[in-house]
Amino acid sequence: MNGLLIAVLVIVVIVVVFVLWGIGVYNGLIALRNRVANGWAQIDVQLKQRADLVPNLVETVKGYATHESQVFQKVTEARAGAVEAAQHGDPEQRAQAENQLSNALVNLRATAEAYPQLQANQNFMDLQNQLSQLEQKIAYARQFYNDVVQKFNVKIQSVPSNIIAGMFHFEEAQFFAAREQDRVVPQVKF
């Protein structure tokens, strides 16, 4: 009788330890999934601010460089693409659209450099400074997001937490990454 009681007690302890372990792993996955969502929201905030700043920057440059309409059109189209991608929420499409906007902004900045009186304009300088600060914040937000995605994906793929992840249908998150063609430095010609 004593042996049976000890065996039952050992089995109960093992089951309790396993259940507590499963709860801990599940809660860890939930915490990481929420950090991924938070990271994405931080990127979204910064990209929205940049998209809101772009029309002001374009209008300021337009006043000085009226014959550079192709550059303005590309920036406007890239911004529209970024805003459209923001509504879908897919990180790959969003990264693609945002990289196109970044390239268009490089062309816009290069165009502005050809106009010394624009470079001296306080409004333009303020907008440039704001845009530069936003670009740094975006880079940090992307890095934070990708770091959290990496931790989340490793947790989902690793044994034994992959068992709990599979049971509760956790799916890997997508990285916010540039495609190879988006990494090409744009050519600026006057």
Rank of each mutant, 00 (worst) to 15 (best):
R50D: 01
K74T: 08
L47S: 00
V16K: 13
Q157Y: 10
A110L: 15
H88K: 10
L101A: 03
N162H: 02
L53K: 11
E113T: 14
Q150N: 15
Y115R: 11
E59F: 07
P160Y: 03
Q128C: 10
R183N: 05
R33G: 13
G22P: 10
D147R: 14
V71I: 04
V61A: 15
E77Y: 00
A7D: 01
A7V: 01
N27L: 03
T76D: 02
Q117G: 12
M125N: 09
D44I: 04
Q100P: 07
W40R: 09
A80P: 03
V25W: 01
L53G: 06
L4R: 15
V15G: 11
K189L: 13
Q122A: 00
E84V: 14
S102V: 12
F72H: 04
I43D: 03
D44V: 05
H88V: 07
L131E: 01
E135M: 01
R179E: 09
E171H: 15
T111M: 13
T66D: 10
Q42C: 12
A165C: 13
Q93F: 02
F72T: 05
K155Q: 15
A7H: 04
F176T: 00
I6R: 15
N34G: 07
D44F: 00
G89M: 02
I30N: 07
V71A: 03
D44S: 09
H169I: 02
V61E: 06
F72P: 01
N34E: 09
L29W: 07
A173D: 01
Q143K: 15
F190P: 12
N129T: 14
F176W: 06
S69Q: 11
K74N: 08
E180G: 01
L118M: 05
A110F: 08
A82L: 02
F170P: 02
V75A: 10
F152E: 04
N99V: 10
N38P: 05
A165N: 05
N162T: 02
F144H: 14
L9R: 14
T66L: 06
Q96L: 15
L57I: 09
I30D: 06
